[in-house]
């Protein structure tokens, strides 16, 4: 007798299907992939100053945009689209098939990872050409960048799936999720220089992963001399790693234990 396909195999198939579906929704493709570029264009044009010797605001902002891109593309989009899939009965139908829940999660993770790669490539392209954003040259910086993107994307995916249990309906999901993400972006130093924020805001932001992702990205895109201007006078990449792993574990735990297939 033929064996039923493995969870990983089905996860990859689901990833391909998710990408295909995503690519056919033109509005969301443009919005999701180009939104950080549009923000960079706006902020880069408004704030022309340098914030430290040799560090333009655009350079500072690119770090924040990549970090918050991870949150928008993973957490925000999943926490909104999964309740919508649930509303129309798509998840219940999947639950009735032999496809395991892990394959569904793997499919989502693949979709998020692929959209992140495209988003970052666009941001780099526009940043380089129009805003003089400088790419890191040291291999160590690229190493940091890669683990930040991978871990950040996994963490954001897991938390997005976990948070999808909160909105009661697909229609209301956006109203629940979007304000959280926007507030988090302001608190975490995506739009402003983190050290200039009130300290209560900094402390609150330090609980959540976006602040750490943003700080980690600054360690990649800003010169090491800038580290002395951080709150802890260093990049704290080790701590960033631990906090992201912790949030990833929390996200996976709630995704696996509490995932809701059905409206009621």
């Amino acid at each position: 007798m033929n064996k039923i396909p493995s969870a990983l195999n089905l996860g990859i198939r689901r990833g391909a299907l998710e990408i295909r579906q995503f690519a056919r929704q033109r509005e969301s493709v443009v919005f999701t992939l180009l939104f950080p570029v549009i923000l960079l264009a706006i902020f880069g044009s408004v704030f022309k100053d340098t914030i430290a010797p040799g560090v333009t605001f655009s350079q500072y902002f690119v770090a924040g945009m990549i970090a918050s891109g991870l949150v928008n593309t993973g957490f925000q989009s999943l926490a909104i689209t999964i309740p919508m899939e649930r509303d129309v009965g798509g998840l219940k139908r999947l639950r009735g098939t032999p496809m395991p829940v892990s394959s569904y999660f793997i499919g989502k993770a693949i979709l998020i990872a692929v959209s992140m790669v495209i988003q970052i490539a666009l941001l780099f392209g526009f940043g380089l050409i129009f805003f003089g954003v400088q790419m890191p040259t040291a291999p160590a910086k690229w190493f940091t960048f890669i683990w930040l993107v991978l871990l950040g994307s996994a963490c954001s995916t897991a938390l997005g799936i976990a948070f999808s249990i909160v909105p009661k309906s697909g229609r209301g999901a956006s109203a629940v999720v979007s304000p959280i993400v926007i507030v988090l972006q302001f608190f975490s130093g995506v739009f402003f220089i983190f050290t200039q924020l009130p300290s209560w805001m900094q402390q609150l932001a330090a609980i959540f992963p976006l602040k750490w992702l943003t700080q980690g990205m600054r360690s990649v895109f800003l010169p090491d001399t800038f580290a002395s201007q951080e709150v802890a006078k260093s990049w704290e990449n080790g701590r960033t790693f631990l906090i992201l792993v912790l949030w990833l574990v929390i996200g996976v735990f709630f995704s696996v234990r509490k995932f809701k297939w059905d409206r009621d």
């Binding site: 299907l17 295909r20 579906q21 056919r24 929704q25 899939e85 129309v88 009965g89 798509g90 998840l91 219940k92 139908r93 009735g96």
Partner: peptide, 10 residues
């Protein structure tokens, strides 16, 4: 099931 209206783009 009674109704499933997902995957409209496939």
């Amino acid at each position: 099931l009674q109704s499933a209206a997902d995957a409209g783009d496939l």
